[in-house]
Each structure stands twice: as structure tokens, then as C-alpha cells.
Design a binder for these strands. Structure first.
Lengths: 198, 198
DNA sequence: CAACAAGCGGACCGCGCGGTCAACTTGTTA
DNA sequence: TAACAAGTTGACCGCGCGGTCCGCTTGTTG
């Protein structure tokens, strides 16, 4: 499919810079940031962006793939941790910190269709489910909560704090703590509605 | 300021239809819905929209004002309820159901600047703070949670479920229950980060 | 160093958006 | 019902977007 002929030196540099700038800009100002802005901040022409990425969506997909891959690596490592409850909390902390700025919750927003992104996301779901299962077996998480529940709640701390752009950049930790307390067995009340399944 | 000369009958009808259609459309498809689409679905020309509302933002502001005003009425009524804990939960339930579809969390997104919206929102904050204070005094809410915390978390259940547009429309209840459990004193762990203040 | 392909840039295109306007229609009122 | 103001309409405008393209530049290679 993709030919792996080595990129020219400057081209490789530009590609890297574009990915970095785009990730930064998307995190800071959201996905509606224009391609022209990204190109300008990366010090290249707009055409160069489209030479490296077929479309804006492809650029986004590339970044999403990177992010999820990172998360998966962390998650797999934490599957072997001694304390399953602490492991799940740390995973959620890493996930929330990763997309600390702005939404960056394009986990399921854009970038669909591409098989590699879907696969990577599926793997993420499996890892989270495994982390949750271990934590549950260890009594650190209530019985009626599933992996899908946790995946959905994963993005909440950032969304919540995005309403106060001027607040402390660490504020998300507060809401992660509250939500995590809601996931604990202690004092849990029965949940309405069955868990979602996709 | 605004002259209150009676609207012509058809004009009043159109204005009402526009507000209804716009609220529906915004809830369903988000704020990026075009004015032209709203006009079409309301069966009027695009120009009519701008006769009734100076700009798209004004139209949004009007809807936001309506929604928050409704919420405030419910909140004020619940301030007199017998069980303060149940009252807070019901308030959050009403709030979440109100903007059940899509985000509609334009609580703090657009529509700023207009003094009446800001005032109404301020009132909302006061009411939520009062509901939380009562619930806390009654032992239904943990000590370290503030009204602002709850306002921020208010929108979370909808955001969370908006990732699964095909799931049950009542799924938000599940995540409201989890988050509310996180607000309870039972089994609460100390929170990192001080509460925000705006 | 010569020569070529790979890479680059920015003018350009079509599109859909929010918003305007002048000609036309219609509810209201005496 | 006559006549006017209030309301309506859709063509139109400017703008910024994602994306294209071709002439130019530059790294690479024998």
C-alpha cells in the first residue's frame, strides 16, 4: 500500500513539525483550527500540509492514532501493576492529562473510517475493560460498572473543566477524583439504565 | 429599550415557530446548524430569521435564556423540598433531561455579552449553590464539594452519552447516578486541587 | 557538478456560511 | 375597503474554509 521510500530530510522535518504544531493547535483551540493557521505556525505553505496528509481529516486521524497508541502502551503496562485499583486511577489520570487542554476528545468524533484508527480504538476499549475487570475483582470498583462506562467517563474531566479556560490547568484532577469516587463500591447506589454495549 | 408594540399575528406565530425549530435543531445537530436550515424547517425565508433576531448569536441567546429561566424556576421550587439530597438529585435530573439531546451545553459557550443572559446564569449559580449547601448540611453531599463544582458537573452526563448517538436516550441517567454517587459523603476520598471560584 | 525527481508555496477554486436589502405581500386599522 | 405600516422573501454580498495545481526550489545521487 504505502511505499516506504525514505523521505527527503527537509520533508521529514516538515512532517514532524506539522504533526507537532497541529496537535498543539487542536488541543488549544479545537478541531476547527484552519489548515492555513497550522501551516503558518509550522512555517510552511498550505500546499505542504496536503502533500503530507491527503486531507485535514487524515491529519487528525494521524494525531488521534498517535495519542491512542500512547495510551494503549500505558494501559498495557498498568495491566501488570500490583494494585489494580491504583492502576485504573493512574490510567485515567494519564488519559485525562494527555488531553488536558481543550477537548481533544476526538476519540470517537472524527477520524472514523480509517481501519487502523478503529482497530487501535478497539484495542483501547479492550485494555480499559481489562483494567476495570481487574479493579473490580480487587474490590476497587463497583460491580455494576463496565469497561464501556469507564471509556465514556474518561473524557469527562476535560470537558467539565473546558468551561473555565482561565482556571488552574490541573483542575481536571478534582473532577477525576469525584468521578472515580463515584466508581468505587463504597456507598454506591444501584444504577438506572443498563450499560451500553458498543 | 425594547418597544413592546404588539406583534402582527403572523409575525408572532413565525417567531414562536423559529424559536421552537431552532431549539430542536440545535439540540439535535448542535450549534453549527445553519440559519438557512432553521428557516427552511420553520417554513419561512432566511430574511425572516434576521428580522426577529439580530444575529444567529441573538437567537441562541434567546433560547439559552429560556432554558436557564426554566431551570431556575425548578431550582427555586426545589429549594423548599423536604429532602435536600433528593432535591439536588432531582434538579440535576431535570437539568440533564432538558439538554438530553446533543450538547445544548451552550450554558457558557455562546450567548455571552448579553447582560440578561449573564444575570440569569448568575442566578442559576446561586440557586445551585443553595441547593448544594442544603444538601451538604443534610449530609447528602460531601463537605469538600462546592456549588461551582456541581454546576460544572451538571453538563457531564450529556457530554458523556453524546459519544454514543445510537444508545438509549436515557443513558445519561446512568452517568448522572455515578457522578452523583461521587458527590456523596459515603466513601469519599479527599479531593486534589482547590475548587474553582468564578 | 549536473541533472532530476521530490518537495514546496501560494494564487486560485468552489462552497456554504452569516448577514443585507429592496421589491413585494399581508395583517391591521379607521 | 382603502391605504399604510409591518412583515416577508430570496437573490445577493463578502468571507474564510478545505482542497487543487503548476511553476519554482532544493536535497539527493551517480
Amino acid at each position: 500500500m504505502t511505499d516506504h521510500r525514505p523521505l527527503r530530510a527537509d520533508a521529514a522535518r516538515n512532517r514532524k513539525a506539522l504533526l507537532a504544531v497541529a496537535a498543539d493547535e487542536f488541543a488549544e483551540r479545537g478541531l476547527e483550527t484552519s489548515v492555513a493557521d497550522i501551516a503558518r505556525r509550522a512555517g510552511v505553505g498550505k500546499g505542504t500540509v496536503f502533500r503530507h496528509f491527503a486531507s485535514k481529516d487524515e491529519l487528525i486521524a494521524e494525531i488521534v492514532l498517535d495519542r491512542i497508541t500512547e495510551l494503549n502502551a500505558v494501559g498495557e503496562r498498568l495491566l501488570a501493576a500490583a494494585d489494580p485499583g491504583a492502576a485504573l486511577l493512574e490510567f485515567l489520570t494519564v488519559a485525562a492529562r494527555q488531553r488536558q487542554q481543550r477537548d481533544l476528545s476526538f476519540l470517537q468524533e472524527a477520524g472514523e473510517l480509517r481501519a487502523d484508527v478503529v482497530d487501535c480504538r478497539t484495542r483501547l476499549y479492550e485494555i480499559v475493560a481489562a483494567l476495570v475487570d481487574r479493579a473490580r475483582a480487587h474490590g476497587a470498583v463497583r460491580d455494576d460498572v463496565t469497561g464501556t462506562d469507564v471509556v465514556l467517563l474518561m473524557c469527562a474531566p476535560n470537558h467539565v473543566t473546558s468551561y473555565l479556560p482561565d482556571a488552574s490547568p490541573d483542575l481536571w484532577q478534582r473532577y477525576l477524583a469525584i468521578i472515580f469516587d463515584g466508581l468505587r463500591p463504597a456507598g454506591a447506589h444501584p444504577l438506572p439504565q443498563p450499560p451500553p454495549t458498543p
